[in-house]
Design a protein around this nucleic acid. Structure first.
Lengths: 147, 147
DNA sequence: CTTCAATTGTTGAATATTCAATATTTTCAA
DNA sequence: TTGAAAATATTGAATATTCAACAATTGAAG
């Protein structure tokens, strides 16, 4: 029967710490690959979400790409300058802004996807198929149970 | 046999994204608890690492608490002002600074530990003993395989 | 209808983080 | 022993993030 860590347990026994550590490491590797195109991880996420071709509101996007609103606004400003995405006011609710991906954005996203898949292949090799899919399953379930 | 996500797979199938999402969620919960004492998660980590009573160099600490050097230096500055920790020059290598936890820091750390254990108990309840320990095992192993 | 609260997104100031440069000390090869 | 390279920590400027306040629009109760 599992117990929570004792009060004086080392920090490495805490789930919060293990998640932070793993996230940092994997993120660093991904960052390294994406830097080949000079794009931060968050922008790849944005492009990926928008690449369904649908319009997504800022709130929806912020949730999906794990950024809070003001940070997203400013990152989108940059991406608009780079003509990777564009804004359209939602005709059904004029408080909202719908974000779309441009052709240039789609082209870039394609390259980034390939770099990201490279990384996952690398993880599969060193970490193993079984562990990877089991870890993904457990993470999904943890996220579910936290809502 | 597991495959990496396809190029056009949704972002939610990427390990990097699932880790980021889980980390964000768990971290947010922990943050919420620790905010009762007005302490950011990183400071709890620092106090916890130092609470072995040994002196730890800045580089060692930075590695352990997942912060890069300049960020750590500035956070330590604040904690020194709050008299939670103090600096001592390493007599064996005068390039190094050894960090120690103060009595006040120990007292605070104790309260924080209890809040953190509360959280893990809460996770155990909603997520399950089995899943939690299996997830920890897989995360440790992922971290290992990334070095 | 009208008004007031809630929702959505942006802005500006305050804060925090990062990058590059620096200072100090140690290591080590010549 | 000396001088150059490496290791360690800090600093300051540039950048990014966050918080609180704001503006615009919608929803909904009276």
């Amino acid at each position: 029967m599992a117990r929570p860590p004792k009060e004086n347990a080392p920090i490495t026994e805490h789930l919060a710490y293990l998640l932070a550590q793993a996230n940092r490491e994997i993120n660093r590797q991904l960052e390294l690959r994406l830097s080949k195109e000079g794009v931060p991880v968050e922008q790849w996420r944005i492009l990926k979400v928008l690449s369904d071709g649908e319009g997504h509101s800022m709130g929806e996007l912020a949730e999906a790409v794990l950024l809070n609103h003001p940070t997203l606004t400013k990152m989108i400003d940059r991406m608009v300058s780079d003509t990777l995405v564009y804004r359209v006011q939602d005709p059904n609710d004029r408080r909202k802004v719908l974000m779309f991906i441009s052709d240039r954005g789609k082209a870039l996203c394609k390259k980034l996807n390939s770099l990201a898949v490279d990384q996952e292949e690398h993880i599969l090799e060193s970490y193993g198929d079984k562990s990877t899919s089991e870890l993904k399953r457990l993470l999904e379930s943890l996220i579910d149970s936290s809502n």
